[in-house]
Amino acid sequence: MAIIEMNNLWKEYGDQVVLERLDAEVQEGEFVTLVGASGCGKTTFLKMLLGTESPSRGELLLDGAPIPDQPDETRGIVFQRYSVLPHLSALENVMLADELHRHKLIGRAFGGKRKALKDAAMAMLESVGLAQAADKYPHQLSGGMQQRLAIAQALMKRPRILLLDEPFGALDPGIRRDMHHLVLDLWRQQGLTIFMVTHDLAEGFYLGTRLWVFDKTRLDPQAPGAYGARITYDLPVGDCDKGTLTAIQAQADATARTMA
């Protein structure tokens, strides 16, 4: 069964149509990257997966059931900023999920249990290359290290799907390449299902197994909100050549200019 399924999915705010007639299926283990011009609904779509926005019409299914309409542990998230908790050290940030699970009332573990959780968290920190920074607060970490920490924190919960909302948008190009390797490694090792929104079309071509381009197929320059965006390209990554990239980029740019 598909892990994510969309049947005639719409998202509207009043008379502004953001997304219309989305139909797609995603299998477990796929790595989908979402690209498109600003305002073409890719972040809205991610929010629907996360549960902070609900579909206006149609169905969005997680493992065959309607996706919960509030965030929970089935879906992990890494935002561009503010993903980690500033008042906890790196280690405490990663331990948090297990602590919340173990102690419903106080959300904290002590003694021998704490030691066990600590060891598990250290192993996770090691796998993202942050073992030396375990006792540092997020503000003492660089932007790239903070995002590594956010990924580690989200993975502790073993979410059904991992959502990445422009996670590397604020990073330097070199750091960004390191992060790509990290995400690809973790995805392969842990068999994750990932949805990643990115501004960077090239990033979408390089990462993942599947590229979705969100764009408006019908666009009224007098009323840019009258029609919603659809998935105009659904490409297996690896099969697309340089020409496709250029064509998608040109279309996305044209949409962006009309909507601006």
């Binding site: 965030p71 929970d72 998230i77 935002f79 993903s83 999920a97 919340l100 009332l105 979410p159």
Partner: peptide, 16 residues
């Protein structure tokens, strides 16, 4: 809001 959402994805209830 990102941090409140993050807590929920880590399994936290309102009290937590």
């Amino acid at each position: 809001a990102e941090q409140v959402i993050k807590m929920q994805t880590l399994g936290a209830n309102t009290w937590q």
